[in-house]
Design a protein around this nucleic acid. Structure first.
Lengths: 185, 185
DNA sequence: ACCTGAACACCGTTCAAGT
DNA sequence: ACCTGAACACCGTTCAAGT
């Protein structure tokens, strides 16, 4: 029994074009870029966009799929063999990921609690990696004993947001301060 | 020579009504609330709103005027006779101020660098108070010697943003971590 | 099975015409 | 001096009709 049918050729082409144009638009104008503009650029009617992607977040989620996998692998590797800078490295990695599109950090922060968000499951994986990193760091004593996974998750989400609103220097400095607070015995 | 004339009675009334309705709308829907809705609620045409307030930020700025004065006085007092928790108190005060309208934190962060923003001068005062607080704290040794005013300003703006995207517990905890990092010798 | 595009309900902003 | 509201240029979202 074939539960998945291969899509019609034009449908597949429209899907790909929409993804490509959405990526370009989100990079230029952030995640709030006009959906009508994306459909126009892809050469399809607006209804076609909605047929493939029922919401803006679904579109963002589809675009992030591969990028997410790379990030998760990086996190798994860090958690498996943590060095002294594992936490800092992880926070930087998530920050760079969020910098893909402006406005993405806010979407991730919301997706953490909102089960209806298409980004929710990937946010949970980010949180889970944070949990494991902090547990390891606690064992090896590089982090204060009362540090929690929530601390790390909050810090990564915060770091991503900060890079949108503060200068890179200010944001980086602030994150270092928080990391040092976390390191304190 | 009278450089300022007293405004027409209806103009003054419209001005007040617009302010009142804008405050209500911003509290309910955040700083991105519909300007047309505000004009409608105030019982004036949309052109009247633009006549009094050329931009959304001008409207926000006008609403914040008094509130700002109270905040600045608080900051001046803290800088004049700083206690051990002066920094933490100040960060909390700015955070609560930014919580007046959702989206205000982002507006403040942008206003810090954007000279064209109607919020720019008040942002500069916030930064200046941060400078003085950190200078005092450095003298009394409650803060690491390389701490700067930029650290404190970044922290306050960040704290305000965090409260919009993170739970109060996570945000508070993160700010405490950064403050502890700042306190370290 | 998929696509189209008109239809609906909203916006922000400007500016000629009124009082 | 101030106000009005039509005009313009945009949105997001749905859905009947087509192929």
């Amino acid at each position: 029994m074939a539960t998945t049918r291969r899509p019609r050729a034009d449908a597949r082409r429209n899907y790909e074009r929409l993804l490509a144009e959405a990526d370009a638009a989100f990079r230029t104008h952030g995640v709030d870029a006009s959906l009508e503009g994306i459909a126009r650029a892809a050469g399809v009617a607006i209804g076609t966009l909605y047929g493939h992607f029922p919401s803006r977040r679904a579109l963002v989620g589809a675009l992030l799929r591969e990028r997410n996998e790379a990030l998760f692998e990086r996190g798994d590797a860090l958690a498996a063999s943590p060095g002294p800078d594992a936490l800092r490295t992880w926070v930087r990695a998530v920050t760079e990921h969020a910098a893909t599109y402006s406005g993405l950090a806010a979407l991730l922060a919301d997706g953490l609690d909102d089960e209806a968000s298409e980004l929710h499951t990937s946010c949970l994986r980010l949180a889970e990696i944070g949990d494991r990193l902090v547990a390891r760091a606690r064992e090896s004593g590089t982090v204060r004993p009362d540090a929690t996974g929530a601390d790390v998750t909050a810090l990564t989400v915060a770091a991503a947001s900060l890079h949108e609103h503060l200068s890179a220097a200010d944001a980086g400095r602030l994150i270092d301060l928080a990391l040092q607070g976390l390191a304190r015995g």
